[in-house]
Each structure stands twice: as structure tokens, then as C-alpha cells.
Measured scan of single mutants.
Amino acid sequence: AVSDRLIGRKGVVMEAISPQNSALVKVDGETWRATSGTVLDVGEEVSVKAIEGVKLVVEKLE
């Protein structure tokens, strides 16, 4: 799938994300809905860990 190429890519949080709420991230110039197990604020850099349906699963870039 096209989205599989995004695993391992870096992105930027466009809307705050919490474990209860998905929000938008920008990866390679494209906007995607994403979820995370932690709270992520706007502007934080993230890494794509997986794809669940049409959502990216991201975590904060260390």
C-alpha cells in the first residue's frame, strides 16, 4: 500500500494528539490523521511506527 512507505518517516504534529484523540500530522508534505499512545503537541517531530487502517501510528522523535 502507498501508506506503507511512510513507516519510519519523520513528520510534524499539526494538531495536538492524545491517546483518546487522533489528529493531523504532516509527513513528506502530505497531511495524515494519526494516533499516538502519548500526548503530542503542535510542532513536535514524530516518527511513523505503523499504519492502522487509514491512520498513522506515531511516536515522539527522541
Results as ranks from 00 to 15, higher is better:
Ala1Asp: 10
Ala1Gln: 12
Val2Glu: 09
Val2His: 10
Val2Thr: 10
Val2Arg: 09
Val2Asp: 10
Ser3Thr: 11
Asp4Ser: 12
Asp4Ile: 11
Asp4Met: 07
Arg5Tyr: 09
Arg5Leu: 08
Arg5Gly: 08
Leu6Glu: 02
Leu6Val: 06
Gly8Tyr: 00
Gly8Thr: 03
Arg9Tyr: 05
Arg9Asp: 02
Lys10Asn: 07
Lys10Pro: 06
Lys10Asp: 04
Gly11Pro: 02
Gly11Val: 03
Gly11Phe: 00
Val12Ser: 04
Val13Leu: 08
Met14Pro: 02
Met14Arg: 02
Met14Ala: 06
Met14Thr: 08
Glu15Cys: 13
Glu15Arg: 06
Glu15His: 06
Glu15Val: 09
Ala16Asn: 08
Ala16Asp: 05
Ala16Met: 12
Ala16Cys: 12
Ser18Met: 08
Ser18Pro: 08
Pro19Tyr: 09
Gln20Cys: 14
Asn21Trp: 09
Asn21Arg: 11
Ser22Thr: 12
Ser22Cys: 15
Ser22Gln: 10
Ser22Ile: 12
Ser22Phe: 09
Ala23Gly: 15
Leu24Glu: 04
Leu24Asp: 04
Leu24Met: 09
Lys26Phe: 13
Lys26Pro: 03
Lys26Cys: 15
Lys26Tyr: 13
Lys26Arg: 11
Val27Asp: 00
Val27Gly: 01
Asp28Ser: 05
Asp28Tyr: 01
Asp28Lys: 00
Gly29Pro: 00
Gly29Val: 00
Gly29His: 04
Glu30Asn: 06
Glu30Lys: 08
Trp32Gly: 08
Trp32Asp: 09
Arg33Asn: 13
Arg33Tyr: 15
Arg33Met: 15
Arg33Pro: 15
Ala34Phe: 04
Ala34Pro: 08
Thr35Gln: 07
Thr35Met: 09
Thr35Gly: 05
Ser36Glu: 06
Ser36Asp: 06
Gly37Asp: 15
Gly37Tyr: 12
Gly37Glu: 14
Gly37Phe: 11
Thr38His: 11
Thr38Phe: 08
Thr38Leu: 07
Val39Gly: 08
Val39Arg: 11
Asp41Gln: 14
Asp41Phe: 14
Asp41Trp: 13
Asp41Gly: 11
Val42Tyr: 05
Val42Glu: 06
Gly43Thr: 01
Gly43Leu: 04
Gly43His: 03
Gly43Cys: 13
Glu44Gln: 12
Glu44Lys: 02
Glu44His: 06
Glu44Tyr: 06
Glu45Lys: 09
Ser47Arg: 15
Ser47Thr: 15
Val48Thr: 01
Lys49Glu: 05
Lys49Met: 10
Lys49Phe: 04
Ala50Thr: 06
Ala50Ile: 04
Ala50Asn: 06
Ala50Ser: 09
Ala50Met: 06
Ala50Asp: 07
Ile51Ala: 04
Ile51Pro: 01
Glu52Cys: 13
Glu52Phe: 09
Glu52Ser: 10
Gly53Glu: 04
Gly53Lys: 04
Gly53Gln: 03
Val54Leu: 14
Val54Ser: 14
Val54Phe: 13
Lys55Ile: 15
Lys55Pro: 00
Lys55Tyr: 15
Lys55Phe: 15
Lys55Val: 15
Leu56Met: 05
Leu56Ala: 03
Val57Cys: 05
Val57Asn: 02
Val57Gln: 05
Val58Thr: 03
Glu59Phe: 00
Lys60Trp: 04
Leu61Phe: 10
Leu61Asp: 06
Glu62Gln: 12
Glu62Arg: 11
